[in-house]
Amino acid sequence: MAKTASKQKILNAASVKQLAYEHGFDVCGLADARATWDAEARLRAFVAAGYHGSMGWMEATLDRRSHPTAMWEGAKTAIMLGVNYGPNSNPLDRLARTEQANISVYAGGDDYHDVIKKKLKAFAGLLHRQSGAEVKVFVDTAPLMEKPLAARAGVGWQGKHTNLVSTDFGSWLFLGCILIAEELTPDQASSDHCGSCTACLDICPTKAFPSPYQLDARRCISYLTIEHAGPIPVEFRAAMGNRIYGCDDCLAACPWNKFAQSARETKLQVREALTDQRLTDLARLDDTGFRALFAKSPVKRIGVARFLRNVAIGLGNSQHPDAVPAAQHLSHHDSALVRGAAIWALKQLMSPEDFSALAENSMAYEPDASVRAEWEQPL
């Protein structure tokens, strides 16, 4: 009898939320994991349109991703948790400093997957010990649609940029989920407060939104700089500016950010070492230096070649005199991916006469056909 009473005391919505705050989460909401929803139809339409680009894992996991119970049949409640990662300043201000690297706010600190998963495991373990209910944790690394679940749990709503928006934290929330085999009283789903605003759509440098609430990832700078493994399509290179890892434009433009707060989790705050990195310095990184600079950072996951590809594009957009030697350095890199991007950069930075002379001397020694094609692109 005592055990049952203890269980009832711990596993109710109010006590679960209190425990969530004690474990370092900034927001917590509950949703019925078994209820029907329209997120599956939207996901299937997204994939059918090809908007997922080269992210083949989205298509491969489509059925498992379609509903929480497709991930785990025993799930009864989704405990949706958010951690604020609000920046101390407006990320859009960094776009004017073209000689400096612009790294997305979310990647300025430690990898949020690691930080949040540690919190989730500790919290979920406590829930299991106190209730005996089976639990599973998720933080953007398994085929679970966290954003629709968070909207259903009252954490926020999916804005026109498709990301979650909160009345308390704006667009700056990392999401985690604990699925639990226990019925808990669900929260009321969030309503949409975007109204007629289109700020997030209007600011997108590559026009990646075919319509409100739809994203074509193939045009998104975050996708291009992080997920896309090949050369950046020429049509998007100038629009990248100095964004070398991710893009915050649509998030930063949201008017609801007026209520946003700076992150209180120190591990998610932007590291001082990454706030004023010059593109010319980053261009000199080798693999060892890259791994050291971005230790524990999500940036490290894309590898040095993809990173230097992005840096080269940034150099080309900087129009800074010091960028030419740095781009020339990258044009001799072992990776054809990096060399190709560096050639494009040199084309933006040099006079047509100087570039033509450089191309004439360099093409004869270039072994990769795709890189030779970069040299031969019209000025």
Rank of each mutant, 00 (worst) to 15 (best):
A326N: 02
P378M: 03
E360T: 15
D168R: 15
C197I: 03
G86C: 05
A327R: 02
R218Y: 10
K76C: 12
A357C: 07
A323F: 01
R34K: 10
T198E: 06
K9Q: 11
V165A: 01
A35F: 07
F174P: 00
G246C: 04
I10H: 07
A124S: 13
L251M: 07
R129I: 10
G314A: 04
Q269S: 13
P325M: 02
P321E: 13
D93V: 13
A359Y: 08
V234A: 15
R243M: 09
V47Q: 08
P68M: 03
L175G: 01
K9G: 11
I244G: 00
A229H: 11
M363Y: 12
T206S: 06
N88E: 14
L285E: 02
E360I: 15
A124W: 08
Q348P: 14
A273G: 05
T288E: 15
R64F: 08
E134V: 08
K17D: 04
Q100L: 05
R309P: 03
Q18S: 12
F355N: 02
A357W: 15
L184W: 04
A229E: 05
Y112I: 03
D202Y: 02
V324K: 02
M350G: 02
G314Y: 01
V304S: 01
D140P: 04
A41M: 05
Q277M: 10
Y223A: 10
P68D: 02
R243W: 05
E182V: 11
L279H: 02
M363F: 06
A35S: 06
E227V: 15
A369F: 12
D249M: 09
R278Q: 01
Y365W: 15
I232P: 11
F209T: 08
S211H: 08
T185R: 06
A48C: 05
Q214N: 13
A150N: 06
V299M: 04
Q261I: 02
S171P: 13
L120D: 12
A49Q: 13
N84M: 02
D38W: 11
W375Q: 10
H193M: 13
R218G: 12
V27E: 11
I313E: 00
G170Y: 06
T69V: 15
A326P: 02
D248E: 14
D110G: 08
L19V: 04
A181L: 09
E182I: 11
D368A: 14
D63M: 04
A60S: 14
L330E: 00
A49S: 12
T141P: 01
D248H: 09
T288P: 14
S262M: 15
H193C: 09
H52V: 09
L201F: 00
Y51K: 04
G230Q: 09
D354Y: 07
N317E: 09
H333N: 01
